[in-house]
Computed example of a mutant assay.
Amino acid sequence: MSFRVMMVSLVSGLLFGFGMMLSGMVDPAKVIGFLDISGQWDPRLAFVMGGALLVFAPGYWLLVRRRQQPVLGGAFNLPTSTILDKKLLLGATMFGVGWGMAGICPGPAVTSISGLNPAMIIFLAALLLGMKIAPLGERLMVKQTT
């Protein structure tokens, strides 16, 4: 990985983390407030996501749709499938349940690790463990269908 790519990655990560901290979305109580649509619903997370989309959508259109390759080289890594299969739906459901139970999304969890919150450290350790064992579960699912 080139120095330029690492620097752009660093700046992007810092911007993301600062934005999450500034918006307060590293606080699980705010995320749970957004998910609590039948109680004390807090719409602030929707505005954070909407603001992100307002910046992302024109940038995506301008850069990805009009360029042959990324600014820093290589190739765009865009999804090619539009199929909603069992694997995608199960993964999305598990992600949503985990997000709802913890009240935190992985991005803000990584951002909040700087506060050395033990709950976030445990969450991230479990997240990494889940990512490590997911291929095993996928292999088991394939064996059951064959």
Rank of each mutant, 00 (worst) to 15 (best):
F3Y: 08
R4N: 02
R4M: 01
V5A: 12
V8T: 12
L10F: 02
V11H: 03
S12N: 06
F16Q: 11
F16L: 15
F16D: 08
G17I: 01
M21Y: 10
M21T: 02
M21D: 05
G24F: 03
M25W: 01
P28A: 00
V31Y: 04
I32W: 12
I32E: 08
D36Y: 02
W41C: 05
D42W: 05
P43N: 05
P43R: 01
F47W: 10
V48S: 00
G50Q: 07
G51T: 08
G51M: 08
L54S: 13
V55H: 04
F56I: 03
A57S: 03
P58D: 05
G59V: 07
W61I: 08
W61H: 12
R65D: 10
R65C: 09
R67M: 01
Q68K: 15
P70D: 04
V71M: 14
V71A: 11
G73F: 00
F76I: 01
P79F: 04
T80V: 12
L84G: 14
D85Q: 09
K86A: 14
L88K: 09
L88Q: 04
L89Y: 10
L90T: 12
L90H: 10
L90W: 12
G91V: 00
A92D: 11
T93L: 10
V97C: 14
V97Y: 13
V97W: 11
W99V: 05
A102Y: 05
G103L: 01
I104G: 00
C105G: 07
G107L: 02
G107C: 05
G107M: 03
P108Y: 00
P108K: 01
T111V: 07
S112C: 08
I113T: 14
S114K: 10
G115T: 09
P118S: 08
A119W: 14
M120Y: 03
I121V: 15
I122H: 11
F123N: 00
L128G: 13
L129V: 15
M131F: 15
P135N: 00
P135Q: 03
V142S: 08
V142P: 00
K143M: 11
K143L: 11
T145I: 10
